[in-house]
Design a protein around this nucleic acid. Structure first.
Lengths: 134, 134
DNA sequence: ACTACAATTTAGAATTAGTCTAAGTTTAGG
DNA sequence: CCTAAACTTAGACTAATTCTAAATTGTAGT
């Protein structure tokens, strides 16, 4: 250990692989799984490995640049929109869309009171039928 | 096919295996995973197979007798409390507790309006630190 | 009771998501 | 250049879940 621990990024870099993963997530309207991301990112960086996708996702998640969401089916989805928001899932076609409920801050307080937890975040999931499936 | 299609259960039964799975879920305060359930149910029905646990969970879920919940880590949890309720997850120890937010009905309406979905249910997840971890 | 059919269970193989490891590569600093 | 730390790679590995095919059980009708 030298005395100089100079930058807040702790020597971590946004490598081309990480950039490619981030770009894929941001470009897509839907919420891709790790394997969707792997396939798409591989078109830019053909040598990209699956493990690197997971490593990159972990890095980006910890850096607050993407968000991991999951519903039921054991395959996390990734979301490049990092502002707090909620999700609606179509019970017919499985489509996942974003929306924001402005009353969330207040909700979080109410939920923390009820559960006796110290609140960090709240997330609301609506299950229903999307406009296309009606 | 005889003319008599007598009962609404469509010939489906609550077998001893399904009962055992249901009993395990109802007896536990926590929210067991499929493998927790498998181990516990096997103590009553030693011949029980893993596949039957999954089949039973599917049956019970579709019959509305248990609820499947999942958070992040690719291992669904099961909950025998079927009234509508919300969950709080401890970001330190992973503990999952139930609580109910009475304003849910109103929330569901607001969320449906925002997302343009026809609402079926809402579920709120609070992430935070549980009382034990503070 | 006996037969036939449908629903169910079983064991284990197969699939899928995600993690780990070890070796090679890149980058920044001296 | 030389080194150390951070990264990437391929592939092995683990864990969760689904699938398949054969054996079993339950129900109706005879």
């Amino acid at each position: 250990m030298s005395g100089s621990e100079q930058d807040s990024s702790g020597g971590q870099r946004l490598t081309p692989q990480r950039e490619a993963v981030l770009a894929v997530i941001r470009e897509r309207e839907d919420h891709p799984t790790a394997s969707d991301i792997f396939e798409a990112a591989r078109k830019r960086l053909p040598s990209l490995s699956y493990a690197t996708v997971y490593n990159s996702l972990k890095f980006l998640r910890e850096a607050g640049m993407v968000r991991e969401i999951s519903f039921g089916d054991c395959a996390s989805r990734y979301d490049g929109v990092i502002d707090r928001h909620d999700h609606a899932i179509c019970s017919i076609c499985g489509k996942l869309v974003d929306f924001d409920l402005p009353e969330a801050a207040e909700l979080m307080r109410a939920a923390a009171r009820k559960s006796k937890f110290k609140a960090e975040s709240v997330h609301l999931t609506l299950t229903g039928v999307c406009p296309d499936c009606r």
